[in-house]
């Protein structure tokens, strides 16, 4: 069993351990030996291009898909597809709430379906209404809610049974920045209570800012896992990116030098630099030699976008 030392030195089981997970749907291999851990009380981002295997992974953890091979452990307990998972809360990407029920009725129903009853259920519903900021709209049908409110209720409905690990599939998709901020505050509050949180998102900047660790999955395998600094070191081997702004778009006929990437308009070129003093002048000279007019430049730390593209490539995934 993978363990992590607590502050008192006692070994603590990982919240989630996935080992060599493999799953195929016919000829399509969704997972091919994926392994990763979630530490207790951490907020982890599970990222990957479309079709990389994220959804299958989440379904496997939730018990909705049986693995062909590999194991899943929740807090040290190995679980098969049909085993109950009371320690797990799964928040679907869709707004999986009943539109004609009120917020309170939705929460009560999903709490009951997860085995919460009596005064515990009533207390948990009150907590969930407060936690999601919906206490003053508790008696309103959810079809009258804004997208952000529905999204918050969607998350709250999965937390009535006090799960110790919460999986969220794109929890902030389609909501405005204010609602997104509120959702991350809610997740931070969960984390403070010791709950482990795993989320998938396509907002890389958000993942970079909010998640303690990031796991990147592609072609059914985990291609990288770690903190942002660890990912940058692994993927790029450097800590800086040279971004060069051109005066006019670079013609399509001009081939880019090795390692240089460009945006879709071909007016910003990006290239990784290992040694700023040595590599920046050399790269600028290369770019000037293409006949391009250099209007400005920035040297910045690599973003998760850079890491993601470096690890998963630029080709479109359909």
């Amino acid at each position: 069993m993978s363990t992590q030392a607590t502050s008192s030195g006692h070994p603590l089981a990982q919240a989630l351990e996935v080992r060599d997970a493999a799953k195929a749907f016919g000829a399509t291999k969704a997972l091919v030996g994926a392994s990763f851990d979630v530490h207790p009380g951490e907020l982890l981002g599970l990222l990957g291009p479309n079709g990389a295997g994220k959804t299958t992974m989440i379904k496997a953890i939730a018990g909705r898909v049986g693995l062909d091979a590999g194991t899943i452990k929740l807090f040290g307990r190995e679980v098969t597809r049909t085993d109950a998972r009371p320690e797990l809360g799964v928040v679907p990407q869709e707004l999986a709430i009943y539109k004609l029920l009120t917020a309170r009725e939705n929460l009560t129903a999903f709490g009951a379906l997860n085995g919460v009853t009596g005064t515990t259920l009533r207390d948990r519903v009150e907590w969930a209404l407060e936690w999601s900021g919906l206490a003053d709209r508790a008696k309103d049908m959810t079809k009258t809610f804004s997208g952000g409110m529905q999204r918050r209720l969607n998350i709250a409905c999965s937390l009535l049974h006090k799960p110790k690990l919460v999986l969220l599939d794109e929890p902030t998709v389609g909501v405005d920045p204010q609602s997104r901020e509120r959702i991350y505050e809610m997740l931070a509050a969960l984390k403070r209570d010791g709950v482990s949180v795993v989320l998938t998102t396509h907002h890389l900047e958000e993942a970079e800012r909010r998640c303690e660790r990031i796991v990147i999955i592609d072609h059914g395998k985990i291609v990288a896992a770690g903190t942002m600094a660890e990912l940058v070191a692994k993927a790029l081997g450097i800590a800086r990116v040279l971004a060069v702004q051109l005066g006019e778009p670079l013609p399509e006929s001009v081939a880019l030098p090795n390692g240089v990437l460009t945006d879709e308009h071909r007016v910003v070129l990006r290239v990784n630099v290992q040694d700023i003093a040595r590599d920046v002048p050399a790269r600028l000279a290369e770019i000037s030699a293409l006949g391009a007019h250099v209007r400005g430049m920035d040297v910045t730390g690599a973003s998760l976008q850079d890491v993601f593209i470096a690890l998963t490539g630029r080709e479109l995934r359909e």
Binding site: A62, G63, R64, A84, V90, P92, Q93, E94, L95, A96, I97, Y98, F110, L113, N114, G115, C157, S158
Partner: peptide, 11 residues
């Protein structure tokens, strides 16, 4: 709406 998936994930 995803509600069915949520129901199936419940007890």
């Amino acid at each position: 709406s995803g509600t069915l998936g949520r129901l199936l994930s419940s007890r």
